[in-house]
Design a protein around this nucleic acid. Structure first.
Length: 590
RNA sequence: GGUCCUAUAGCUCAACUGGAUAGAGCAGCUGCCUUCUAAGCAGCAGGUUCCAGGUUCGAGUCCUGGUGGGAUCACCA
C-alpha cells in the first residue's frame, strides 16, 4: 500500500473513531501540502463538519492528534483553517529512499498484462515532414514510452498515406520537368526532392489556371490536373509503368522520412500503407449490413444512423460500392486487431478530426469489436507561429529537418561560449550539441498540454535557460559531475544509513522522488506527456537549489556526504528516465 | 446555423478528481562565480483567471446565458 492510501485509510478510521461516521477512502481529499506551509500532505476537513457537528479547526485538531498517535507514518500535524497538515516521519522517507535506490528501474509500473497500440505520425508521401508532424511524432513516441513505463505492452504503428492524387502530382511533375534527376544526382534529402516536384506541380497548375483566366475560360480545368487524374486512374488499373514510378518516388520519400525519424530518435514496430488498406472494410460493412447495423439507401450507398449517439447519419460505402475514409479506418482497425490483439488503441491525430474519430469509435462499438471500449483519439491542437497559422502558400511552413538543424546549431553556439566541452572530440561535441538542441525543441513542445493549440516561437524554442529541456539536462549533468568526482574518492556508503536528521531540502527532494511512479501512471492514464515534463522540471528545479545551497562532496559529516551522493544518484536516474519518457537524452556533460 | 474545443501576468505556459494567499519561465530591473558545472541561485515588479448570473463551507475548475478565437458538419483523405 502506498503512502497516500495509508493516510486515506487512516483518516477514514479516525473519522469513524472520533465521530462514529463511516466514509470511503476516496472521500478523503488529500493534497500535497503547499510550499508556504509545514507538512507533506494535507487533509481537507471541511467535508467532515456535518458529521462531526464541530468547527473545522476542532476537527482538524482531533483528527491530527488521533493520526499522530495511531499512525506510524504521521510524525506531527498542524491545523490552519480547515486544513490539516501532516508531517510524515523522516524514518518513513529514509526507508522509502533506501528501497527506491535499490530498485533498478525505479518509477516503472508493474506489468499490466494489457496491450496498447499507438498510431502516430501517419504522413502523406508528397512532402517532407513539418512542425505539425513534429508535435504529432513527439506526442506519439512519448506516449508510447510512458505507457510502456506504466506497465503496458505497447506497439507503435503508423499508416502511410502513399496513394492518391497528391503523389500522382509529384510523379507527373517529375516526369515532365525532372530530366531524370534523382536525390543522388542533386544531393538533396530524398523526401525534400519529391516535395520539390509537388511544389513544381502546384506552380504549373497555377500558371495554367492563370493562362485560362486570361483567355476568359475561368471555369476550365488546367490540363495538368487532368493528366494527374489520368495517372491516378492508371495507378488504380495497376499500370506497371506507373506503379514502378510510384514505387520509386515513394521509396525516396520513405528514405527521407526514415532519416528524420532517426534524427528525432523515434521508430515504429509496423508500418501500414493505405495502398494496402484502402480497399479494406468493405466486407466488414457488408457484414454489418446483414446485421442491420448499417442501412442501404435506394441509390445503393450504405449509411449508419448515429443519431442515438448524438451524431449524424454517416456514409460508409459509396453508391458505386467503393470505400470512403471511414470504411478504410474500420478495416484497418480490425486488421490491426488481427495483428496485435490489442486491448486499447491510441490514435495520435490532430483535433480537426475529432468528429471523424467519434464516429469511428461509435461504429466500432456497434460492430462489437472487442477493443471498442479501448479506442482513444489523442487529439492535439494545431501549432501556430507567432505570426499566425502556418501556410504552405505563404511559405511559412517550418520544415522538420531545418528546425532540428537550427536548434542544434543554437546549442553549438552556446557550448562554445560556455567552453565546458572544449576538450572533447568533434564527434562528442556534435553528440552533445545534438542532445541539447533536441532537448530544447522536444521539451518546448511536450510541456504543453496536447489538447491545446500552441504557439511555437522558433526564437523561444532554442532558449536553453529557464523552463526548458536543457535546464533539466543541466541538473542531471551537475549530478553526474559530482558522482564522477566521488568515484575518485573513498566514500563509505554504509554510513548513509546513519544520516537520519534530514534537512528540509533533502526531505522535499525525497518526497518529490516518491511521486514519480504515480506521475507516470497519471501521465499514462491521461495520455499526456506534459505531466511527466512538469515533474522533471520540478525535480530539476529543486535539485538546482539544493545543489546551490548544500555542499555534497564537502558535506559536514561523512554520513551526510554518503547520503547526499546517493540522493544525487537517485535524482540523476529519475531525471534520466523521466526525460527518456519524453524522448530526450541526457548528456554526460554540457 | 448545429456540434465540439478554447480564453489565466506584456509574451509562452502551469494549477491532480472543486480546496489555503492562482504558480513557473521569458522579457524588464537588483544582487551572487577563488569553493561539487553560472545552461545555475536569490530578489523586485507584473492578475477583476473574457463578461454576467448560479450551485457550494469553498469556483480558474462545475451549471446557465453571452462575447472573442479555432475546428468540424463531403459519395475528400
Amino acid at each position: 500500500m502506498n503512502l497516500l492510501e495509508t493516510l486515506q485509510n487512516a483518516v477514514v478510521k479516525a473519522v469513524d473513531q472520533c465521530y462514529g461516521h463511516q466514509i470511503e477512502p476516496d472521500q478523503v481529499t488529500l493534497n500535497v501540502t503547499r510550499k508556504d506551509f509545514t507538512g507533506d500532505y494535507t487533509v481537507v476537513v471541511f467535508p467532515f463538519t456535518k458529521a462531526a457537528r464541530k468547527k473545522p479547526v476542532e476537527i482538524g485538531e482531533e483528527l491530527g492528534a488521533y493520526l499522530v498517535e495511531h499512525v506510524a507514518e504521521v510524525h506531527a500535524y498542524n491545523v490552519i483553517n480547515g486544513f490539516l497538515n501532516l508531517v510524515v516521519a523522516d524514518a518513513y522517507w529514509s526507508a522509502f529512499f533506501r528501497e527506491a535506490l535499490a530498485t533498478e528501474d525505479y518509477g516503472r509500473g508493474a506489468p499490466k498484462n494489457s496491450t496498447v497500440l499507438v498510431e502516430y505520425s501517419s504522413p502523406n508521401t508528397n512532402k517532407p515532414l513539418h512542425l505539425g508532424h513534429i508535435r504529432n511524432i513527439l506526442l506519439g513516441w512519448s506516449c508510447s514510452q510512458i505507457l510502456t513505463a506504466a506497465g503496458y505492452a505497447v506497439n507503435k504503428v503508423q499508416i502511410i498515406n502513399d496513394r492518391g492524387i497528391h503523389i500522382c502530382k509529384s510523379m507527373l511533375a517529375w516526369q515532365k520537368f525532372g530530366n531524370g534527376e534523382t536525390p543522388q544526382s542533386t544531393a538533396m534529402k530524398s523526401d525534400h526532392f519529391v516535395g520539390k516536384y509537388y511544389v513544381r506541380y502546384a506552380q504549373e497548375e497555377k500558371a495554367q489556371k492563370a493562362a485560362l483566366v486570361a483567355a476568359g475560360q475561368q471555369e476550365a480545368e488546367p490540363a495538368i490536373l487532368g493528366e494527374a487524374r489520368q495517372l491516378l486512374l492508371r495507378w488504380e488499373a495497376n499500370d506497371p509503368e506507373v506503379r514502378a514510378l510510384w514505387e520509386k518516388m515513394n521509396g525516396w520519400v520513405y528514405e527521407g522520412f526514415e532519416e528524420t525519424y532517426r534524427n528525432l530518435g523515434v521508430h515504429f514496430d509496423k508500418n501500414y500503407y493505405e495502398s494496402n488498406t484502402y480497399l479494406l472494410g468493405r466486407e466488414n460493412v457488408q457484414d454489418g449490413l446483414a446485421r442491420d447495423i448499417f442501412y442501404r439507401k435506394p441509390d445503393g450507398s450504405v449509411w449508419i444512423n448515429l443519431e442515438a449517439a448524438k451524431l449524424d447519419h454517416k456514409l460508409v460505402l459509396r453508391s458505386d460500392g467503393t470505400a470512403v475514409y471511414m470504411t478504410q479506418d474500420i478495416g484497418t482497425a480490425l486488421l490491426r486487431y488481427a495483428d496485435f490483439k490489442m486491448d486499447r488503441c491510441v490514435y495520435v491525430v490532430g483535433d480537426e478530426q475529432n468528429y471523424h474519430f467519434k464516429v469511428l469509435f461509435e461504429i466500432m462499438k456497434r460492430l462489437g469489436a472487442p477493443f471498442a471500449e479501448g479506442l482513444y483519439h489523442l487529439s492535439y491542437g494545431m501549432v501556430d507561429l507567432p505570426s499566425g497559422r502556418m501556410k504552405s502558400r505563404e511559405g511559412t511552413v517550418v520544415d522538420a529537418d531545418d528546425l532540428m538543424a537550427e536548434v542544434i546549431e543554437e546549442a553549438r553556439k552556446n557550448s562554445e561560449e560556455s567552453g565546458v566541452i572544449t576538450g572533447l572530440s568533434a564527434v562528442e561535441k556534435q553528440q552533445i550539441n545534438t542532445q541539447i538542441g533536441l532537448a530544447a525543441l522536444k521539451f518546448f513542445i511536450l510541456k504543453v498540454n496536447p489538447q491545446k493549440r500552441m504557439v511555437f516561437d522558433p526564437k523561444e524554442s532554442v532558449d536553453l535557460q529557464g523552463h526548458t529541456g536543457p535546464y533539466i539536462q543541466n541538473a542531471g549533468v551537475r549530478a553526474r559531475s559530482v558522482l564522477r568526482k566521488a568515484a575518485q574518492l573513498e566514500v563509505d556508503y554504509a554510513l548513509a544509513g546513519s544520516y537520519t536528521e534530514l534537512a528540509v531540502a533533502e526531505k522535499d527532494l525525497i518526497a518529490l522522488l516518491y511521486r514519480f511512479p504515480a506521475v507516470i501512471q497519471q501521465s499514462a492514464r491521461a495520455y499526456d506527456p506534459s505531466v511527466v515534463a512538469a515533474f522533471c522540471y520540478d525535480l530539476a528545479k529543486s535539485y538546482h537549489k539544493f545543489y546551490h545551497d548544500y555542499s555534497i562532496l564537502q558535506a559536514e559529516t561523512e554520513a551526510a556526504k554518503a547520503f547526499r551522493l546517493q540522493l544525487c544518484q537517485l535524482i540523476e536516474r529519475t531525471l534520466t528516465m523521466g526525460m527518456r519518457l519524453l524522448g530526450i537524452e541526457m548528456p554526460e556533460r554540457m
